[in-house]
Amino acid sequence: MSTVQYADFKSRPFYGVLKPASAVAHLIVAEGEGAQAVMDLIAKAPADFASKATLLYAEGPYVSENSRSQALRELGFARFHTSATAAAAVPRLHGALDRLRMGTEVYLTGNESALSLFVKACTEAGLDYQGLQTEHRGSLARRMQCVHCKGITEDVTTQPAECAHCGLLLLVRDHYSRRIGAFQGVNINAEDPSDVPPKEEIFR
């Protein structure tokens, strides 16, 4: 198993900068620090943009009504919903996608884990991922699927990292599956289990 990592790894998702599109309607899904990306988007958009837009915002765990939600609320979105976390926002996103019409531009922003969940929900609703706008804001902590036991470990920040399900020590690869919404983790010391490399905090 290669440990070589390349700057432009072809399966690793790349994120852009949200840009207001010419569209009939807009669906924006944001998590945590993605709030600022939404502000930046609105600042670039025509005046009637927010009135044609729905915003689903996951403010982060254990926050009741933080200043970010307050600021977003004031932007005048046609519909505005808050959720505690990205995972909690997903059922609401599925509901919005069920009612969505073609010609609605979809904008996704937040940390790497949140983007994984949002893109996965959109593709499950029949949208091609190439038509989605994404912008990364916040943590680079990864969702990781253990290739051995198939369990998904959330918020992985170290290299290597332990699988939260089977306990194997995993190399967190750049190889990424959009269908699963996770990076691949592969046992790092299979050839010699006594060789335990130190963990480094690299996905922050």
Partner: peptide
């Protein structure tokens, strides 16, 4: 395209 349909559709 003007109505926001993605190219892939």
């Amino acid at each position: 395209r003007g109505a926001g349909w993605p190219e892939s559709h």
